[in-house]
C-alpha cells in the first residue's frame, strides 16, 4: 500500500524516484482571468488521487497542464522525473521541441469526459494506432495486446466495431484501453462518467477500480463520491483555482475541515 498521507511539496526541484507527478505552485491565466492560482499536489507511484470540486474550479485545466496540452504561466510540473514542457539547463528554462513534448506525453494516458475516440477507425485501430506509430510496435503484436486489453475491459467482441456503434459506456472503456495500450506511467481521468447514462456508469467505474487495485498511478477528476471513497488514496478539493483541502477519503468526505468542502459535499452527496 503506498503512503497515503499528503505531503505538501515545498521544495522546488526534481522529486524523488517514488513520486510520479508533482505540481508546484502552478498558475494559469486565460486572458485576464487567472484559472489556476497556485496549485500544488503530489502523486506517488501506485497512488490514486481523486480531485473533487465545483464546475469551473479549474480541474480540467490542471489535467491539461499536466499533459502540456495547455502551457502554464508559472510554477513547475514534474512527471516521471522530467519537467513538463521544458528543459532546465544552468538555471534557465528551454522550451522542449515538439518531438520531445510528444515523447513525454506518450507516457501519460488521458481519458476524456467525451471519450474522444477516433470516429473513422475501428475499436482495434483506435487502440493500436499510437503503439504502432509512436512506440514502433509491430502491428501484429499491437493487435494482440489490444485484444487482451479489450478482454480486460469486457469488450472482447467489439474489436471491429466503429465507435458510433457502441454505447457511451462501451466507448469510454475503449478509450481506457486505448490509454493503457501505451503503458503509461500516469493515467489522467477527466470526469470519465459525467457524459454517461446512469446505468452505464458502474461498468466504467468497475474498470477504473481494477486499475487502481492493479497499482496504476492515477489522477481522477470525478463527481462520483462513492468511487472516491472506495478507490482513492487521497482526495483533494479544488475551488476557484486553488486546492482547498487535501487528505484521505475518510477525512475529506466524512470529516471535512473547510467550509467550502462541506458546502460542496452537501450539494453532491
Amino acid at each position: 500500500m503506498p503512503d497515503a498521507t499528503f505531503t505538501e511539496p515545498t521544495t522546488i526541484g526534481a522529486p524523488s524516484g517514488e513520486t510520479v507527478c508533482r505540481v508546484v505552485d502552478v498558475r494559469k491565466r486565460f486572458g485576464a482571468q487567472e484559472i489556476l492560482r497556485g496549485v500544488s499536489l503530489e502523486v506517488k507511484a501506485g497512488e490514486v488521487l481523486c480531485v473533487l470540486g465545483p464546475s469551473g474550479s479549474g480541474k480540467t485545466t490542471m489535467l491539461r497542464c499536466i499533459n502540456h496540452l495547455e502551457k502554464i504561466d508559472s510554477g513547475q510540473i514534474w512527471v516521471d522525473g522530467g519537467l513538463v514542457g521544458y528543459r532546465e539547463h544552468r538555471d534557465r528554462l528551454y522550451e522542449l521541441h515538439e518531438r520531445e513534448v510528444a515523447r513525454r506525453r506518450a507516457n501519460i494516458g488521458m481519458v476524456f469526459q467525451r471519450f474522444n475516440l477516433f470516429a473513422h477507425m475501428t475499436v482495434l485501430e483506435n487502440i493500436t494506432m499510437a503503439p504502432v506509430l509512436v512506440r514502433r510496435q509491430k502491428r501484429s503484436l499491437a493487435a494482440e495486446r489490444a485484444r487482451q486489453l479489450l478482454e480486460r475491459v469486457g469488450l472482447g467482441d467489439k474489436v471491429d466495431a466503429y465507435p458510433s456503434q457502441l454505447s457511451g459506456g462501451q466507448q469510454q472503456r475503449v478509450a481506457i484501453a486505448r490509454a493503457l495500450a501505451m503503458e503509461p506511467k500516469l493515467l489522467l481521468f477527466d470526469e470519465p462518467t459525467s457524459a454517461l447514462d446512469p446505468e452505464l456508469v458502474s461498468g466504467v467505474l468497475d474498470v477504473m477500480k481494477e486499475l487502481a487495485a492493479d497499482g496504476y498511478t492515477m489522477i481522477v477528476v470525478t463527481h462520483e463520491i462513492g468511487f472516491a471513497r472506495e478507490a482513492a488514496d487521497r482526495i483533494i478539493l479544488m475551488d476557484q483555482g486553488v486546492v482547498v483541502e487535501s487528505g484521505p477519503p475518510a477525512q475529506i468526505i466524512d470529516n471535512p475541515r473547510e467550509q467550502r468542502t462541506k458546502s460542496f459535499l452537501s450539494k453532491v452527496l
Partner: peptide
C-alpha cells in the same frame, strides 16, 4: 472534432501525424 485531435496529441502523436491520421481522413 477538436476532442479527437487532443486525444491524438495526448497519445504522443506529432502535429504532422495528427494531421494525416486524424484530421485529413
Amino acid at each position: 472534432d477538436e476532442g479527437q485531435v487532443e486525444a491524438a496529441y495526448s497519445l504522443g502523436l506529432k502535429r504532422v501525424q495528427v494531421l494525416w491520421r486524424i484530421v485529413l481522413p
